[in-house]
């Protein structure tokens, strides 16, 4: 349902994506791993048009992603995004954050949106935080509200941009378990992450990206357990055994 064909992208003189070709099937969980600065996040940001790309093609459900075309709204309502820094709206309660998109973008009736919003917050384990403002929530709670906000759009896929990197270690588990449940329920997910355990256990496929190219890809267990490429081996060694 998401297809990238030979995507190139430069920031000024620095080429961050040097011909990315990849696809994500419906119901698939794909983890993107790689060193920082390798272009992982940029790929996600290009998929829902937060960033433009210079050449190549990105298709979501067959429709070309073009951040300057009106069609981008349709893409974004189908492909939600969860950010590293949560980016919840601090002036709105948890529930208001969740219903913002359904009511003001999808024009759903308020009552229906509220009901689903409550159900989604319950699903991520935050029934008791419905009326709480984001600054009063822990990082893990904020990220779970952000996941509920993404789900409220009833997307066909969700992009996760390092969803646990800004969290205290003891809060990572809550967020990962919510994500694992989503994966079990068949949600299509593209996850940029440094959580190799999550990638190994939950992902169907892993893409290893370095220097703006896909160095290696394949089933999660084979890429992470028996990496073929020297750069993948080196990266995994440093991530898994930092000392």
């Amino acid at each position: 349902m998401i297809e990238l064909t030979n995507v190139h992208k430069s920031f000024g003189k620095v080429e961050v994506l040097k011909g990315i070709t990849a696809s994500v099937e419906k119901g698939e969980v794909v983890c993107i791993v790689g060193p920082s600065g390798s272009g992982k996040s940029t790929i996600l940001r290009c998929i829902n048009g937060l960033e433009s790309y210079d050449s190549g093609d990105i298709l979501v459900e067959g429709a070309k992603v073009d951040r300057n075309a009106p069609s981008i709204v349709a893409v974004r309502t189908q492909v939600s995004m969860v950010f590293q820094r949560f980016n919840l709206f601090p002036h709105r309660t948890a529930l208001e954050n969740v219903i913002e998109g359904p009511i003001y973008v999808k024009k759903e009736p308020r009552a229906a949106a509220l009901e689903r919003g409550r159900a989604l917050l319950a699903q991520v384990g935050l029934s008791d935080k419905i009326e709480t403002y984001p600054p009063q929530l822990s990082g893990g709670q904020q990220q779970r509200v952000a996941i509920a906000r993404a789900l409220a759009m009833e997307p066909k896929a969700i992009l996760f941009d390092e969803p646990t990197s800004a969290l205290d270690p003891e809060l990572v588990g809550d967020v990962l378990s919510v994500m694992r449940k989503l994966a079990d329920d068949g949600m299509t997910m593209v996850v940029v992450t440094h959580e190799m355990g999550f990638a190994r256990d939950v992902a169907d496929r892993v893409l290893f990206i370095d220097g703006g190219v896909i160095v290696e890809q394949g089933p999660a267990k084979s890429v992470l357990n028996q990496p073929q490429h020297a750069r993948t081996q080196d990266f995994l060694r440093r991530v898994l055994h930092p000392l």
Partner: peptide
């Protein structure tokens, strides 16, 4: 206002004006 706020608004499909009115200006 943090750029992340604008991106979050865009990511749920808000246009420029809606992002201003619902997210940026109130803050």
């Amino acid at each position: 206002i943090d750029k992340g706020q604008i991106e979050a608004a865009q990511a749920i499909g808000m246009g420029w004006w809606q992002t201003m009115r619902r997210v940026v200006l109130p803050q």
